[in-house]
Amino acid sequence: MSSDRRPWTFFVLATLFTLFVIFLYGPMISILILSFQGPNGSLSFPLRDPSLMWFGEVFNPSRVGDVPGAFSRSFPLSIIVMLLTVLISVTAGFGFRRHFRGSTLIFYTAIASLIVPGLVLSIGVLVTARFLGVSANWYTTGLGAHLSWTLPFGLLIMFAVLGRLNPSYEEAAYDLGASKWQTVKEVVVPIVFPGMIAVALFGFTLSYDEFPRSWLTIGTKNTLPLEIWTMTTNVTSPSLYALGAITTGISFLVIGAALGSIYLIQRKRAGL
């Protein structure tokens, strides 16, 4: 392995890897291109007279669906889910550093919540709402259904992050005369912060794109993934691709912001 000549497997696996990346991104890029289809263009290649018309069509409720309305519910929902996911999984992550009664039970409940089929949970939350006599809404049942999916992810990330936070670091800080607040600010937060951004990224994107857990739980007004789901059967124009390009663009902005800030923090820390 330490020899400088690459073994032949390197070239085989490098090819496999390249093909996989093309397989991963190719379809996404193709709908991005086709979203610029002209008025006579179809749902497939070639691209005829490129235009922006289908992007305008996305916001035409009579032709497509209520995309702005769906977005006006999806976006705040994802933001709330993101904030709650960070808050709850970070505090819980710290709680799990100590052994306490029921810790194993709660851990496995979280894992079970992660792997339970989304549709099953959707039915359950709707039935629960019925028994309680409340109506399903994106900011009540929808929010809870999303949290039951994002929190286990957040918890697992916090486990990985806090696994690296050796308790002796904090003890060392105390021994050197740091106050409790200083220890948190100077020792704990710098180590945990990139992990918190990762949790936020998961919280936002998982909620923003969640379909099965939203299906029965968000009530009568659709969030974006449900609106897109309806469109996959109703809309036969490239405006479907234009909407896909827009929401993927929003996802990429969020991913870029999260990864970029983690990168900046790491660089700043390395520079210290």
């Binding site: 709850i88 505090t91 100590r98 949970l121 359950g124 028994f131 259904a145 039951s148 929190l151």
Partner: peptide, 27 residues
Amino acid sequence: RSFITQLQVAPLTLVLFLFFVVPVALV
């Protein structure tokens, strides 16, 4: 300390109970 630990884990427990354990039990 153990009270604080319980308090730290409480929100997670609550959400999991309300939006996972109860719904699945009702199913």
